[in-house]
Amino acid sequence: MPTDKDDFSALYPCDFYTPAELLAPGQMYTVYEIARLLQGLEPDAEIDEGTEEILLDWAIPWVIVNADDLVVAEPRTDEEPGYYGLREDGGVADGADE
């Protein structure tokens, strides 16, 4: 059920980082690391599983919305997730951007 805005002590702008503000050029990140960065944490910060699930709820749509500014790399092994990084000139495999 909707809640009146007056029920909250403060309201904040719904601003998100751009990929260039969040990710370092030349680096690739898992969606788990991106989730931490979006919350101002270090990419390798220890968080509990429940918190990580909540953070992923924010990170996955962020990746989708910013897809035009990102590149993706397949996992190196079956045990690890994919990686995302800033799209830079020359950062996309030949033919992959067509």
Rank of each mutant, 00 (worst) to 15 (best):
Glu49His: 09
Pro25Phe: 10
Leu22Ala: 08
Thr30Ile: 07
Pro61Gln: 11
Pro61Gly: 13
Val65Trp: 08
Asp97Ile: 05
Glu42Val: 02
Asp44Thr: 13
Glu49Pro: 00
Trp58Phe: 14
Val65Gly: 00
Gln27Gly: 00
Ile47Trp: 04
Ala45Val: 01
Ala59Phe: 08
Phe16Lys: 11
Leu86Ala: 05
Glu74Cys: 01
Lys5Ile: 09
Asp97Asn: 10
Gly91Phe: 00
Ala10Asp: 11
Leu37Phe: 02
Gln27Asn: 11
Leu70Trp: 03
Ala10Glu: 14
Gln39Met: 11
Lys5Thr: 10
Ala73Cys: 07
Met28Trp: 01
Ile34Thr: 06
Leu55Arg: 13
Gly91Asn: 11
Ile64Asn: 09
Thr30Glu: 03
Asp68Ser: 14
Tyr32Asp: 13
Leu38Gln: 07
Ser9Ala: 14
Gly82Cys: 13
Asp44Phe: 06
Gly90Cys: 08
Asp69Thr: 06
Tyr32Glu: 12
Asn66Asp: 02
Gln27His: 14
Arg36Phe: 04
Met1Leu: 06
Met28Val: 01
Glu88His: 01
Glu52Ala: 14
Gly85Val: 01
Asp68Thr: 11
Asp78Phe: 09
Phe16Asp: 11
Thr30Val: 07
Ala20Asp: 08
Thr77Ile: 05
Thr51His: 05
Arg87Asp: 08
Ala24Gln: 15
Glu53Pro: 00
Cys14Leu: 13
Leu70Tyr: 07
